[in-house]
C-alpha cells in the first residue's frame, strides 16, 4: 500500500478495491471506513448507514463473498479484496431472482434495511442453496428491519431458494 502525505502532513494510502467486478483505486486516510468509500467516493449509496456500530446490518456488503458490516471495516483493511454491494446483483438492470422475490412477496416497506438484508440472504443462498427457515432467520438475524416483522422477508428468501431448485 503506497503512502502519500499532503502539505499539512496528513497521510493518505492508495488502496484498490474490486467492487462489483470493477477495480477502483482511491487515496484514503487511515480512519476512512469502507462504507464511506462506497457511498461517498464510489456513489454506491445502496449500502446504507443505520447504526454505524454493527448492530443493524444496513451497511452489509459481501467481502470476498462473506457478509460483513462495512461500517466496521477500515477501507485500508479492505485493500485488495473483492466487494459486492447491492448494486452488483442486478445484471444489466435486470434484478436478481432474490431481489425479484423481495418485490413479489411484499418483503419491502421503507426499504432502508432491504439492501443489507438482501446481501445477507444472497450470501446464505450461495453457501446453502436450500436453507431451512431457521437457517434463513439465523442468517438475517444481524439485519434489523423495523417495518415488516421479517414475515415476508423470510417468505421471499425461502421462495427464491425454491426457485433455484
Amino acid at each position: 500500500m503506497q503512502k502519500i502525505e499532503d502539505h499539512s502532513g496528513t497521510k493518505y494510502y492508495l488502496i484498490t478495491l474490486k467492487v462489483n467486478g470493477d477495480s477502483y483505486t482511491r487515496a484514503v486516510k487511515a480512519n476512512t471506513l469502507l462504507v464511506n468509500v462506497l457511498r461517498e467516493d464510489l456513489d454506491l449509496t445502496g449500502t446504507k448507514k443505520g447504526c454505524e456500530l454493527g448492530d443493524c446490518g444496513s451497511c452489509t456488503v459481501l467481502l470476498d463473498g462473506k457478509p460483513v458490516n462495512s461500517c466496521l471495516i477500515l477501507a485500508l483493511e479492505a485493500d485488495g479484496h473483492e466487494i459486492t454491494t447491492i448494486e452488483g446483483l442486478a445484471q444489466n438492470d435486470k434484478p436478481d431472482k432474490l431481489q425479484e422475490a423481495f418485490v413479489e412477496n411484499a418483503a419491502i416497506q421503507c426499504g432502508y434495511c432491504t439492501p443489507g438484508m438482501i446481501m445477507s440472504a444472497k450470501a446464505l443462498l450461495t453457501r446453502n442453496p436450500h436453507p431451512t427457515e431457521g437457517e434463513v432467520r439465523e442468517a438475517i438475524a444481524g439485519n434489523l428491519c423495523r417495518c415488516t416483522g421479517y414475515v415476508n422477508i423470510v417468505k421471499a428468501i425461502m421462495s427464491a431458494a425454491e426457485e433455484q431448485q
Binding site: G54, G57, T60, L63, P67, V68, N69, L72, S120, E138
Partner: peptide
C-alpha cells in the same frame, strides 16, 4: 456471539 456479519470479521 453477536451476529453473522460480526462473526465473519
Amino acid at each position: 456471539m453477536a451476529n453473522n456479519q460480526v462473526r465473519n470479521i
